[in-house]
Design a protein around this nucleic acid. Structure first.
Length: 280
DNA sequence: GCGACAG
DNA sequence: ATCTTGTCGC
């Protein structure tokens, strides 16, 4: 946990400022304008998973699901060695490279399965310099991206205060949200109650080529549980059982998530709004 | 000045 | 990020 090199941080800040100019905060796709997202067929999710005492080796995951049914179309996980340390505010420099490689591989083996939008585990514009991991991946891949963080990053005045907690308490039902505004008034993201069964919100922000309202609406429709399915399925690396305890094997039990189970009993009720199924 | 701070 | 164990409820 050595202090990050000041010189490196300065270089990273310049790079973020440069790439920030390419972020598109508008809905660039037709399906984004549609009330029910008709035309949207594939949603992707990316994430990195680690093992207890090792923070330089990780498993890079990429999954592509059907929309709106959230069935797995493609999944890939690969062991990678990271070159940058974790420094809050600079996640992109650590995680973007291997995730971009996974997208590149998909483009080569199954270009027809390229997702139309990518869910990223982390923030987008809701960031110190308005350039979180979701923006980083968005700009470098030019794919529409949505940032979804499970924990609150302390950005310009937005902190875990009593005020913030009371706003969370006011989120009555799945789909409710409140804006995350800077001291200067700019709304950088929204806290969304993504499912009926979880009180803890998820923090949604624009990554690239999408509007904040569209990002929040889309995130809500992709949630069966608190975490959007594309990101959640990323942890389900439950395929062939590992032969030995080989940590370089992405299929090792150390990287294996829980099994998939999509029994209707556990689904998010408000999600039925988008299906020809029973209400509440 | 010190601490807080996505994954 | 990751570890940790059971428990209560639909």
């Amino acid at each position: 946990m050595a202090a990050p090199e000041a010189e490196l941080v300065l270089k990273w800040e310049r790079e973020q400022a440069r790439l920030r100019e390419s972020v598109k905060e508008e809905d660039t796709e037709d399906w984004q304008r549609s009330p029910d997202f008709s035309g949207l067929k594939r949603v992707g999710g990316v994430d990195l998973s680690f093992i207890k005492g090792d923070d330089i080796n990780a498993c890079a995951h990429l999954v592509v699901l059907t929309y709106p049914h959230m069935k797995v179309l493609y999944e890939d996980c690969k062991m990678v060695t990271l070159n940058a340390p974790y420094v809050a505010g600079f996640l992109g420099f650590r995680e973007a490279p291997p995730l971009l490689q996974a997208l590149e591989k998909l483009k080569n083996v199954q270009p027809n399965l390229m997702p139309q939008v990518l869910f990223v585990d982390g923030n987008g514009l809701f960031h110190y310099r308005e350039f979180g991991l979701a923006c980083h991946l968005g700009v470098l891949s030019d794919l529409p991206c949505v940032g979804v963080a499970k924990n609150l990053l302390h950005v310009e005045g937005v902190v875990r205060s009593e005020e913030h907690q009371s706003q969370i308490n006011a989120l009555q039902k799945s789909g409710d949200s409140f804006p995350l505004a800077t001291t200067s008034g700019r709304v950088l993201g929204k806290a969304l109650r993504s499912s009926h069964s979880s009180i803890k919100p998820v923090y949604v922000s624009v990554g690239h080529r999408i509007t904040l309202d569209t990002a929040v609406r889309l995130t809500h429709t992709c949630c069966l549980y608190r975490v959007p399915e594309p990101i959640r399925q990323t942890a389900a690396c439950d395929r062939q059982p590992a032969k030995d305890m080989d940590l370089t094997d992405p299929h090792s039990t150390a990287h294996r998530g829980r099994k998939r189970r999509l029994s209707t009993e556990h689904r998010n009720p408000s999600r039925w709004l988008f299906f020809p199924a029973p209400p509440q």
